[in-house]
Amino acid sequence: GCGLCGIDSLEQAMRPLPRVADGSLCLSRTEVSGATEALRPRQALHAKTRATHAAGFLVPGQGIVLVREDVGRHNALDKLIGALMRSGFDSASGVAVMTSRLSVELVQKCAMSGIPGLVALSAPTARAVHLAEEAGVTLVAFARGGGFDIYSHAHRIADEVTNVA
C-alpha cells in the first residue's frame, strides 16, 4: 500500500533507502516520451471502468513487458513489483511507468526493489524528487504528448532533452 500501514512513527516511513546501482540502463528519448501512451492500450481494467491506475515495466528495446492495474497507484506498483520478481526479469533492466503522480512511497518502492527509474504521466512531489536524487533513481514526470521532464539522474536517458528540471 502507501507505506504507512503498520508503522509507529513518521521516522519509520522515511527510513534510509539503498542506493540503486548505476548499471548500464539507458533509455532513448523516444521510449521515455512514449512510455505512458504505450501503457494505455494494455490497461484492460481501465478501459472498462475508467477508474484504475496502472504500473508497467519498460525495458529498453522491448517496450512495456509487464502491466498491473489497481484502484490505488501504490497497489498497482506493488503488483508490478511482485510480477517482476516472479517473471525472472532483472529489476535493474528497466523502469517503472505509472499513470499517476509521483510520491515518496513510489520512489521508496522502486529503490527497495532495485528499479533504477520511474516515469509518470503526472507531477512529482518535492520530497519524491529529493528522495529519488538520494537513492539514485531516475525520476521523469509529465511523460506525455511526446515530451517529459527529468528531475533526477538524467544520465540514464540518451539524447537528453534541454528541458531538465
Rank of each mutant, 00 (worst) to 15 (best):
Q62C: 11
S93I: 02
S93D: 06
L77K: 03
C110L: 08
A120E: 02
E69M: 11
D90K: 06
A128T: 06
P124H: 10
I64W: 00
L80D: 00
M98F: 07
G117W: 00
V67Q: 03
V32C: 07
P41E: 15
G63D: 03
S122A: 11
R42T: 11
M85C: 12
E69P: 13
I81L: 14
R68G: 07
S122W: 07
L39F: 08
A123Q: 10
P60Y: 04
D90A: 09
S33D: 06
L66S: 03
R73Y: 11
L80F: 04
Q43A: 11
A126S: 14
T52I: 09
P41V: 14
G63K: 01
P60D: 06
I81K: 00
H130A: 14
G88V: 10
Q108K: 12
S87F: 11
T30C: 11
V32M: 08
P116D: 01
L45V: 14
L102Q: 04
A83W: 05
V67A: 07
R73I: 08
L77T: 09
A111R: 00
S28T: 10
L118G: 01
T52C: 11
H46I: 11
C26K: 10
V119Q: 02
R101C: 14
C26E: 15
R127Q: 15
G88D: 13
A44F: 15
G61E: 02
A132S: 12
F57R: 06
A120G: 12
